[in-house]
């Protein structure tokens, strides 16, 4: 049903054309999105650099989810442009963004619980048998999917014994691990994670944070949307603060305090009053 994925190797090695760290990967300039009289995105800029985890924080209603939807193709902006590797792109749907190598992990654990881990990893992009069996009958290459799922989960150090287990037998953290692993396997440019730890306990949340770090270390930049400030400060390289529909500041989590970051987010602290070394 998705012919374009039929030859996808599935288990993606780290991207081989790694751009130098710090070079721009995904950018947005002057994005605007209006819903009737409500302006959800009001001239927002955005910069994701290679090799980093960029946290996006913002109060409820600040428009960060609209921004993320625009970047992942779920919303088409009215104005402004999005650049991927410096080239303008126009996503009409989440599928367009995926084809361009941007994968999204959703907070509500987007997995099929009754299906196996291997099936979930390859859901919608199954590996097919070579020859007529694959092209005509769309027969699955189960041994290859199993082998690649095992290799991929091992490379991300997700300790699950059998890929033939149903996802519903896993803990919440392991389930999110499957969702993250799926995105990391197919993303060629960017992984977007929308509140990946929101539904998890402390220990499980830390497990997923560690996993996010591993995804970055394999060369994929990560956009992390989170309300959990300790998590943000633990793993983000830079923090994009979204306020009133646009980017208010980009902060350096190693310089600014958690309280000040929240103050900027809520407007209690003016951006001009932040010491210059706290910007990133």
């Amino acid at each position: 049903m998705n012919a374009e994925f039929d030859n996808n190797p599935g288990h993606m090695p780290p991207p081989d054309h790694l751009p130098p760290p710090g070079s721009p990967v995904l950018q947005a300039r002057g994005l605007v999105k209006r819903y009737g009289r409500v302006t959800a995105i009001d001239g927002a800029d955005f910069d994701l650099r290679s090799g980093e985890i960029l946290a996006v924080i913002g109060d409820n209603g600040a428009g960060k989810s609209s921004l993320i939807k625009a970047l992942s193709g779920a919303v088409v902006p009215d104005e402004g442009e999005i650049l991927l590797d410096g080239k303008p792109v126009a996503f009409r749907s989440p599928m367009d963004a995926r084809k361009a190598g941007i994968e999204t992990v959703y907070q509500d654990l987007a997995v099929a619980p009754a299906m196996t881990i291997a099936e979930n990893l390859f859901l919608g992009r199954e590996l097919l048998r070579p020859g007529m069996l694959g092209t005509l009958l769309r027969c699955l290459d189960k041994p290859r999917m199993l082998a690649e799922a095992t290799a991929h989960m091992q490379s991300l150090k997700i300790g699950i014994r059998s890929m033939k287990q149903a996802v519903e037998t896993l803990s919440g953290g392991q389930r999110q691990g499957v969702a993250v692993a799926r995105s990391a396997a197919f993303a060629r440019h960017v992984v977007i994670m929308d509140e990946p730890t929101a539904a998890l306990g402390v220990k499980e949340g830390n497990m997923v944070l560690e996993l996010i770090r591993r995804v970055r270390d394999r060369g994929l930049p990560v956009i992390l949307i989170s309300h959990n400030m300790p998590h943000v400060f633990e793993i983000a390289d830079r923090i994009h603060v979204h306020r009133m529909g646009k980017r208010a500041a980009v902060l350096n989590p190693r310089r600014i305090s958690m309280n000040d970051a929240v103050a900027v987010m809520t407007g209690a602290l003016a951006v001009e009053d932040i010491p210059p070394e706290c910007h990133a």
């Binding site: 998705n2 994925f5 989440p94 599928m95 987007a110 919608g124 799926r182």
Partner: peptide
């Protein structure tokens, strides 16, 4: 919903 999000038509 998960099926749709993974790109299944």
């Amino acid at each position: 919903e998960a099926a749709r999000l993974t790109g299944i038509a």
